[in-house]
Amino acid sequence: MVDVALFVTCLTDTFAPRVGVAVVRVLRHFGCRVRFPVGQTCCGQPAYNNGFHREAAAMGRRMIDVFEGCDYVVTPSGSCASMVVHHTPHLLAGDRAYADRARQLAARTWEFGAFITDVLKIDLSSITADPAEPVTYHYGCHLRGLQSADQASRCVGELGGVVYRPLEQMDECCGFGGAFSSLFPNISNAMVSDKLDAIERTGASVVICNEAGCAMTVEGTARRRGMNVTFKHIAEVLAESLGLMDDVP
């Protein structure tokens, strides 16, 4: 049995608990033993990206302590995975007590979709996709360096019977970018608008978006526009397709 520690991330924890539930259920369905270290908070990415590196390093150390001893750390966010995999080891490179452990944690940490396809090696074509309506997929930028847009979208495109409509310019940023979207709301909004236009052109009614930050931004703007599209994490889609979410509306 594969031991997995769930790193749910602060955004998913706070805004999208259903995604966390879906991740747990899908992983269990595929035979993982899942635990949730309750001491976890934030990986430090917002602090890191905005230049508060002392604070980010402190949070990085906390992550390492909390997730010590797990075989795998799986997170529903590519962005937070990228923080743990790419940035924390550099931040803590000069820290004798943590440098090695940071690298070890990086090696054990996986974004959910990549974990499903690359570690568990699940044959997605054996799962019949629910919804039956057309879906499209938003590639979160911070998956770069973990999975290319082509690799990442396989999670969606290979689902059995899925009607998948790829987005034009799939790998272009949606305009979230953390503090960027509040520091430069106009540029951000121009980017979100173009992303929504591209979503509209696909005719898809479901957008699969695995980043809580991107989803908040794009869905929030879609609502303001009055667009009729649903946003889902791939874990929700998988869990629903497997009939695991009937009790969680």
């Binding site: 749910v8 998913t12 924890d13 706070t14 805004f15 999208a16 608990p17 966390g20 539930v21 747990v24 259920r25 269990r28 369905h29 595929f30 035979g31 033993r33 899942v34 635990r35 949730f36 309750v38 709301p185 951000s188 909004n189 979100v192 908040m216 931004t217 869905e219 929030g220 703007t221 609502r223 303001r224 497997l242 695991l244």
Partner: peptide, 29 residues
Amino acid sequence: LRDLPRPAARPFRQVWQEEEAMPTERAGV
């Protein structure tokens, strides 16, 4: 420029306790 999502009434860490109590393997795959 956009709507903001509301923090959930029960964050994941509260939901987890019920989730943890569920049987580990729900299906045969």
